[in-house]
Nucleic acid binder design. Structure first.
Lengths: 245, 245
DNA sequence: CTAAAGTTTAAGGTAATTGTAAGCTTATGT
DNA sequence: ACATAAGCTTACAATTACCTTAAACTTTAG
């Protein structure tokens, strides 16, 4: 999948359309294209679909159930095993059993042919926007978590240790938030800088280090031998040992 | 709405069921309850629904289109104006126009009566999990895979064996990433060098070997007799035995 | 307006990572 | 079997990314 952060709206989503009937394939493509989707990829069978999926990393899949070399259900399972992309099934016949099977396997929606173009679009948009722009989550509740004995509350920006309570500064907060979002994973220095200073150019990399240091001063019991905010030399930083609350 | 952070799965979601037919109301409630939903609220008309919505802050709404004192569409617009809760419509008749209207207003799904209990559940779950547990956003952008007993996570750049965890250095990371991208296939030395050092000219071929060796030290149980990172004499290297996760 | 708090710059120090070289082993072809 | 080429291993040297500290600068709050 293309990096989620690069997407501003559902139309930026790359959609893989898997259907063996050329007529339907172009029809679906046309519907999407007319609506504003530009990144479309097509595949006519499981084999090709697999290839395209791995190659193009689509952000959404429209999948015909019946394919010449296998069924769409199986294919979806493969996709889901690696990526949680939203999948919308298209099916020729409206058989309850199939519909339940598809949805049960985790399909995001299941549309029966013949379908209304408008409905396809609306359902695709619904699925994509829930998957990539989950407004519900944007409400203003920030995480609270622990690093060993230290509790961090990103709502108040406070760090509570046995010895007392400190407050994070703006930069420290921005950095820690970014690190927390990607806890367990490496975050590049560049990425951290953008989180704290925006996309504008930025002077010395050293600045980041100093702030990391200050942050360590607050969240590490032994800042010089960090246990949580680790340096991954050559790659970036990583927050580990996070207990979510 | 209840705080998102307090929810661990879709069953923790508080669901508001709005339907004027008592029979259907209890039927839907029963279906949900049997599946594991415990926090159910019901309302029989728009007025009551509004009240319940404000009072209880549900995490999801199942909404009949036809209500005695107004239509569900209008009601949804009100809800959506303040909270982005997932809404799933139930409709008596399968009229295209209504379905499109509902979806167009931002409904998350639209089910026509009579419906299969299982389908209601599946669709509700799909909608809720996308809204509150958007895996897509959390998924690892980089691959995680196994070489026998050894697990490699390219997000965190970590190699986990039975004996413990190591971290890859920048060069090791670059090489392994390239090899993984072409797993099963031979990657030429030249290609690997470019992956790790860029296109600029580069000194000694030996350097690559040294790094390959170091990488083997981390990912092979017996670095001198590699099982995964193989030398293809005269051609390059190849990563085999990869279990994708 | 002043003091305090926060941020950035600069410079010297350190250690992990990386590069190099030299000797070694294994494969290949005659 | 031998010669030659390709690849492996090891140790050590060089580099560079990162850390630390302190001082200068900027913003905020009283």
């Amino acid at each position: 999948m293309s990096l989620v952060m690069d997407m501003n709206n559902v139309f930026d989503c790359k959609i893989l359309i898997v259907d063996d009937e050329p007529q339907l394939q172009t029809m679906v493509s046309e519907i999407l294209r007319r609506e504003g989707f530009t990144k479309l990829i097509t595949a006519a069978d499981c084999h090709e679909a697999r290839e395209m999926f791995n190659l193009e990393k689509p952000d959404g899949v429209i999948l015909d159930v019946c394919l010449p070399d296998g069924d769409g259900f199986f294919l979806m399972r493969e996709f889901r095993a690696v990526s949680a992309v939203p999948v919308l099934f298209l099916s020729a016949r409206d058989e309850d059993e199939n519909r339940l099977l598809g949805l049960g396997l985790g399909a995001d929606d299941y549309i029966t042919k013949p379908f209304l173009p408008r409905e396809l679009i609306l359902r695709l948009r619904a699925v994509l926007s829930r998957a990539y722009f989950p407004l519900v989550l944007k409400q203003n509740v920030k995480p609270v978590f622990c690093l060993g004995e230290i509790e961090i509350d990103l709502n108040s920006g406070s760090v509570t240790t046995k010895k007392g309570q400190l407050t994070l500064t703006a930069k420290e907060y921005a950095l820690l938030e970014k690190l927390y979002e990607n806890r367990g994973n490496i975050v590049t220095g560049d990425s951290l800088c953008r989180a704290a200073w925006g996309d504008d150019l930025y002077g010395y990399e050293n600045t980041l280090m100093v702030h990391i240091r200050r942050l360590r001063e607050k969240i590490e019991t032994q800042p010089s031998a960090p246990r949580y905010l680790l340096t991954i030399r050559g790659l970036g930083y990583k927050l580990t040992g996070v207990d979510s609350k």
